[in-house]
Design a protein around this nucleic acid. Structure first.
Lengths: 299, 299
DNA sequence: ATCCATTTCGTTCAAATCATCCAATTCAAC
DNA sequence: GTTGAATTGGATGATTTGAACGAAATGGAT
């Protein structure tokens, strides 16, 4: 559901005058659709892009489809404050506030990858370490995970839809790995980088992933490994996957904290990413590549 | 087979009002065919020409049939058609189309509970039964699950935020149950019924759930049981949970297909729901109850 | 063929938006 | 501090939009 804003709505949202918004659309700083009668209609993703790139304040977030930004009006709220608020919100199970923090960070100009690498991961890590011996910490972590998934869903909507002919990325977490969050994060980062992402989620058999990659002619296949399972077994499977993918011209990308302890290292056609920003850069590089000639490692 | 759009359909597709579309056809900016009785019918090619030439935004592409699949011709807004399209979209991993179908159903007036009980469950069940012996069915089901989670996220946003003093519901899936989707569905249905929902997701220890319910003074605790685990063990835990919850004045609600086979039946303080519409009704009943628990915010 | 709920029709009208012009404010360089 | 250019925000009448109304047409179902 893509929303359209009138000039007045958008002007109110960012606390500018309708005249200025109209002038900005005339100069092309804001791209608009038009009605048959010549009235301007600003698509929501374009509005969000403008806010991010121009560093506009946000006076009435609800007009942009964001229903709560923490703090007072505007982006007087710096990223460090938002980061701390995010941690609080995730701790206390305040989904609304957490969503507000994440979207606030995004509207402040941070990329999805930066948000995930920074505030989000920091907060989740702190939560995991807060009460090492308190069983209730499990609960808090569960709840925080769910809330993160919600917030990521909002980010996905703000990114907008990729082009119909955008390259495809498929991925998930390997069999025996029950975690959805890391795989979802990777998916959205890839979407931000311009991919049509297909996330198969936790517990995905790798041979099937290879099949999916071949059938969709995916340019990238990602694997998010968080669970500490049988390392030797996974190594074998990953190598097999890499071979299959090489045959179909798909790049294999691995990420996740468990990789090191499982003894999985970069090798022929296996790219390991330490951070989401790396994945993002890698993906943007892959989209920039012309056509089908993908650089696969020589045998 | 050339598709014809009514004025309302086209208006929704481009985010304009039906009045304006009607006026544009009168002035000749949009050329229309007419029925014998004088109703306007806009041929799809003419609709697309108009969109391109006027620079209109496309708010709901699925109404233009651009992303619809063979077999989905006919009246775009009808629920049966949307239901079938949803199944196709989930099968083919078309997240955009699936989101469009779900929001379309919601905009048609169906409640979240009805959408989940009906089209969504039907589609997921059909997907589960499509290729009983094909291992790739696993993959399709995984992907469909993720897409459902996305679509549910959109529904949640369309529901809007509950009041700050709305009653609280906590819940999740019991330990050993890895499924997130059923628990998420229950959470959104409860949100629609006016609750502030706190979903702890899969693999939630029941004693901790009881603690959370007590500390948040939750009015309802839900448990979504899909995995077929150790029935006897779960029965014991559920009974213990029911006792703890009874002490703190929280209603315990159970749902999920695995309940019957695990031998869990309604008993003292254990309410079993067969469908989401039942859960919705139960929840609305519980909100309607005057002050049976304290409506104060947690610390 | 007939009935019924839903949708669309034509019309009218208040509110919003358009293009344009002009005064006030901001900013940078002197 | 002053000057001049650029940006902003408001005011103007003409045009466009979206919502309301009862009447007519549509699409199913009996």
């Amino acid at each position: 559901m893509e929303k359209l804003l009138t000039t007045t709505e958008f002007a109110e949202a960012i606390g500018a005058s309708e005249s200025s918004v109209r002038r900005w659309t005339n100069t092309g700083v804001i791209r608009t659709a038009k009605t048959a009668g010549g009235h301007r209609r600003i698509p929501l993703p374009e509005a969000i892009r403008f806010v991010r790139e121009s560093g506009s304040a946000i006076v009435r977030p609800e007009l942009l489809g964001v229903h709560s930004l923490p703090g007072a009006a505007g982006k007087a709220l710096g990223s460090p404050v938002l980061e701390e608020s995010l941690f609080d919100a995730l701790c206390n199970g305040n989904a609304r506030s957490a969503n507000g923090c994440v979207t606030g960070l995004f509207l402040n100009g941070l990329s999805v990858a930066e948000i995930c690498d920074g505030p989000l991961q920091t907060a989740m890590k702190r939560i995991g370490e807060l009460w090492p011996d308190d069983p209730r910490a499990i609960l808090v972590e569960h709840r925080a995970t769910i809330i993160c998934l919600q917030a990521l869903g909002m980010l996905r909507q703000m990114i907008g839809q990729p082009a119909d002919d955008a390259p495809i990325a498929v991925g998930g977490a390997p069999q025996g790995d029950p975690y959805l969050l890391p795989s979802t994060i990777a998916g959205i980062v890839l979407a931000e980088a311009g991919f049509r992402e297909m996330n198969f989620g936790p517990d995905t058999p790798l041979d099937l992933l290879a099949t999916a990659a071949r059938e969709t002619r995916a340019k990238i296949a990602w694997l998010a490994v968080k669970a500490e399972t049988d390392g030797a077994k996974l190594r074998v499977k990953v190598n097999a996957l890499a071979e299959q993918l090489a045959a179909s011209g798909t790049l294999l990308v691995l990420g996740g904290g468990a990789l090191a302890s499982l003894g999985i290292r970069p090798s022929n056609g296996v790219h390991i990413m330490q951070k989401m920003s790396e994945l993002s850069a890698f993906a943007r590089g892959a989209v920039a590549l012309p056509g089908s000639s993908l650089p696969t490692a020589p045998p």
